[in-house]
Structure formats: structure tokens, C-alpha cells
Simulated scan of single mutants.
Amino acid sequence: MSDHIHIGIVVGEASGDILGAALIQELRKRFPNAEFSGIGGPRMLALGFHSYFPQDRLAVMGLVEPLKRLPELLRIRKFLREHFIKNPPAVFIGIDSPDFTIPLEASLKERNIKTVHYVSPSVWAWRQKRVFKIARAVDLMLTLLPFEAKFYQEHNVPVEFVGHHLADEIPFAVDKVAARKILGLPTEGRIIALLPGSRASEVERMGQLFMQSAVYCLEQDPGLLFIIPAASPDRYRQLHIELNDYVDYPIQLINGHSHEAMAAADVVLLASGTVALEALLLKKPMVVAYKLAPLTYKILSWLVKSPWISLPNLLAQKLLVPEILQDNATPQALSAAVMHYFENPDEAIALSETFAQMHLELKRDASARAADAIASLLNSPTRTTN
């Protein structure tokens, strides 16, 4: 295939912009004169990507905001559908944002435009019947995690497990002493990192809980030091106010530097999310906790098919790290789970070794593998509709 091609890409949030920019760089190695357009963020724009709309117009979260913005989102999708049908790209790539991109992929695939979706929605965990809609929408699914690829293989959806970009970015060897020096922390002694979440609602639910858990841990070992890396300046202000009740305790608030904070720690207490994968890649024993509004939790408990919520357990397909959820997430329970690692150091070491093996499995040069898979699709015969 000629390298004078047009590739369509749509991303809806900052994490997609990171993946999109790395993918563009790898695709350019294979197709030096390729042109890229659609919707992208600042990293993609810096590489010459043409975005028809600002990426942040797609970045909606929650239940209410998407409904408020629905007319605008539908207008944007209609424009993209008509534009790409009129000016067919060699391939269209939707990165994450499945509620927006998968229907667009389906419309384009109907017109014999090759389609790729990069980053699987959690279809293996809930609303599993979405896999049939995805099968109709994509010529290729690119997954970050191996168990996701297995799910698609079982449903006869063309899939490639490319690995996780965080496994490529986070160094395999973790220098705890160096991380402590960077943060100005003592190089000796036990340190526990508390990560109560990146959203205001998460910190509201988990912040005080984690601080109370720290107090219970200190009753067992007064020599502990706790650090809380705030995910943003807004979360720093929010946590600073919450810490007013804990000024007499060794709990130190840090602005950002979550990776360094986890690297500096002996154990991490965290709110479930991508941060659990980051802690795994940093080889840190962890306790995963989460609380939702009671009705939301009840609905999700009914919908979700997976027995686990955290990525370490999902990757292992067994309970590798404690998951303490909802009413069970008490300061007493969390502190007991954290202190268990200090009381059983052999378990903590074995867990870190398991995490090292998982890091190797996920470290696959994800962007290059994704670009290779897309290049193979481009070089395959064009489909024809029946």
C-alpha cells in the first residue's frame, strides 16, 4: 500500500490523546506521508494532526452531563460520519470513548471503511452483550490487557493484545531510596502512601476514611509516616482542608508526584482505578478500597459480572490483593489489611515478585504493536458488503 494515505482518528479524553500521539508517531514510521485528522488533543496536534473540534468537547463524565450535552455530541458525530463517508480514510481508529466512537465505527464499516477500536470498554465485566455491537462495528479491536483479548477471541472478534503503555513508560526497576530523596522524605523507616482518588467525589468519600485508617495503623506502629500525593491542585486544596483534623499525625500532603510517592512507599492504600495498575507496575503491595453512593453500588453489583474490580486481581484472575468495598471499608479493616504486609514480609516480597512477572507480560511496546496490527489490516484485502 502507498504511504500517501489518510488515517482518521477520534479521541475523547486526555488519556486517549497520549495513546493517539504515540500511535501517530509509530504509524508515521510505517507510512511516512500519512495524513491524520478527526478529533485529537494537544499532543496529537503538536504532531500535525488536524482536529475538526476541540477534544474537550467529547470529555463528558457522569450520568447527567452527557445528557445535557447530547445534542452537541450528536451533531459532532453526524459531521464526522458524513465527512469520513465523503472523504474515506484508509482506516478509521476510535481510541477509547466507546459510547461516542463505536457507533461512528459501525457507520463507517457499513461503507467498507476499515475500522479499529483501541482500548476495550469493560465489556467483559458488564453489559457483555455489547460485544455483538462491537463485532459489527470493528475490523480490529486492540486491547491493553490479555484477559480482554481472550474475551474477544471467545466471541470471534478480530483482536490484538498490544500491551499497556504504562508498562512501557514505568521503569521495571524501582529505586525506593531515590524516590524518597526526590520527595524530601527520610530514607529509612516505613512509609505508607494513601491515594484516595483523583475526583472530588472520590476524595470526599475516601479521604477521611484513609486518614482514619492511618490513625489506626499508627496505634500499632507509631513510627509510620504517611504521604498523600494530591492528583491535582483542586484535590490538594480539598485534602488540605480534610487534614485539618489530623495535624497531630505524621501525614504529609504532596502536590502531584503520585508515581514517586508510590515508589517511595512500602505499602499503598488506594481507591480502585488505574492507580492500582500503576502500583502494580511499581511492584508495591497494596490494599484496594472503594465506596460508591448506596444506590449506585447496588445497581453496579447487579450489573457487573466480574468477581473482582482491581486490575491486579483481574490480571491474575484470582484474589491477589485485598479489595475492601462499600460498608466493609472501615478504618479498622483497611488498617488491618495494610499492617498485614508488615507483619508478613514474605507475602509482601512474593507479591512484588508476582507484579514483576505481570509487568513483563504487559510491557510489549504497545504503540509499535498497535501500529503493526493496523498496518497489517491496511495491507489486507478490502472487505465488500454482501
Rank of each mutant, 00 (worst) to 15 (best):
K109G: 02
E110R: 14
R111N: 11
I113A: 06
T115V: 11
T115C: 12
V116G: 05
V116H: 11
H117E: 08
H117V: 07
V119E: 01
V119Q: 05
S120R: 03
S120M: 08
P121Q: 04
P121E: 01
S122L: 09
V123T: 10
W124S: 01
A125I: 14
A125T: 05
A125E: 11
W126F: 11
W126L: 04
R127Y: 15
Q128K: 15
Q128G: 13
K129D: 13
V131H: 07
F132N: 02
K133P: 00
K133V: 05
K133A: 09
K133M: 01
A135N: 11
R136V: 08
R136M: 06
V138E: 01
D139C: 07
D139K: 06
L140R: 00
M141L: 06
T143P: 02
L145F: 03
P146I: 06
P146R: 10
F147L: 14
F147H: 12
E148A: 11
E148Q: 08
E148L: 15
A149G: 06
A149K: 08
K150G: 05
F151Q: 02
Y152G: 09
Q153I: 06
Q153M: 14
Q153S: 11
H155W: 12
N156M: 07
V157Y: 03
P158F: 07
F161W: 09
F161Y: 12
F161K: 11
V162I: 14
H164K: 09
H165F: 10
